[in-house]
Design a protein around this nucleic acid. Structure first.
Lengths: 126, 126, 126, 126
DNA sequence: GTGGTCTAGACCACC
DNA sequence: GTGGTCTAGACCACG
């Protein structure tokens, strides 16, 4: 069963996208593997304190991408092929890194300063 | 006059927030200084190809934060004290770094891998 | 025993309501009579290829309307008095005719055109 | 402007489908013509006493079928070609007639009785 | 218990 | 003012 223990909601980004990204990133990290069971709509919505439909939207989009298989009346399962994983990894890393670099550069940081900030926050959140 | 030459719109984030962030980050980088003149709502909306109301909203929020002063019938000016700048710098850097670290950690990267990705993309976009 | 040979499922309407309507219309037509035995939930659900709970729901609603009597451990029987039948006949005919007339009139047909369409389809489906 | 004066909600059918059918049938009858303006989401939802999103769903589905063109910030217009109209007419007439005939036959009526009921209700609602 | 759909209200960008 | 999206709650068919 996929765990949402380390998941925390944050404002400014649609909730369903946060759930979506959490699952994609978990797949990239290996914490979520092919065939893993997902919490049901009700369970996860109760856990996160959001509406079941918000969870469902994330699940539906993932199913359209082929990352989830759902059968009415039974559990939803992750469906991750090797190709899917490598594609996901490339896409997500590129997107996140690009956004971070963009922000740092707009604020006038040098590459060294940016790296220093990353390293500082990395330790803090250990 | 504040330049928007290096401004590029990107999807998924409200436009008025992108304008807001662009000005705040420019202030942090020093590219935008206290007393700098802002383009009029009409001019900027035409320049960015967005609706004047969207620019108006960004300007209004900045004014509520005290980062802009507008005098009726005259131009809007950036209003940046030393305290404001240091506060902005701390807030923005913390927020952006935290988000980047969060993403990298969720994807299972080590600190060294994360730094490597940042450095790789830094060069690419030079 | 009530036969479901001429029953066909169609989309867009809840299945339990289709079962309900089938039995009511059969009663009105005389094909289903007072005292007729109904297939058990298990048998009917297998016959129609639907979930036993769906059949259960239809039977429960019919029982609440007094059109079915069930004795624990024995079969369910149709329970149709003369009054019930005439009421059903009036209700169903009025509802279906009203809906058809409404549709035809909304499409701008004259009474004669509507009748012509009914007659045409009547022959086709013989 | 398309009028909804003769529109009345009825239970048992999704509201968005009732709106959808009303517009299609109006097009078939000629009461609604190519280029006619539709009431805005807000206006129609207030008029019918339903949620704006329910109206929007009907409009969105019609737009996907090509029967409506919508531009953000301006009115939605009906878009009806001759081919579209003849297709709509055939589809709707077939569907409605088929459903009516099916109901009448299930109730054991003869063709003559069915026609008589149609004619009786036709007069009543004049 | 499961997933799927319908209705609902608030917010956003835009003309 | 317009249409588009996000979040929300109730109901349905199903295993």
């Amino acid at each position: 069963m996929v765990s949402f223990d380390s998941f925390t909601l944050c404002g400014g980004v649609p909730i369903y996208q946060q759930i979506l990204l959490y699952l994609k990133r978990g797949a990239v990290s290996g914490a979520i593997a092919d065939g893993d069971e997902l919490p049901s709509r009700r369970v996860l919505s109760a856990l996160l304190g959001v509406n079941p439909n918000t969870v469902q939207k994330a699940y539906r989009l993932l199913e359209e991408e082929g990352l989830i298989v759902s059968h009415t009346g039974s559990k939803s399962l992750m469906s991750l092929t090797a190709e899917t994983l490598s594609r996901l990894r490339a896409e997500l890393l590129a997107a996140d890194t690009k956004e971070a670099v963009r922000a740092f550069r707009q604020m006038g940081l040098t590459k060294e300063e940016a790296v220093e900030w990353i390293e500082r926050f990395w330790e803090e959140e250990d």
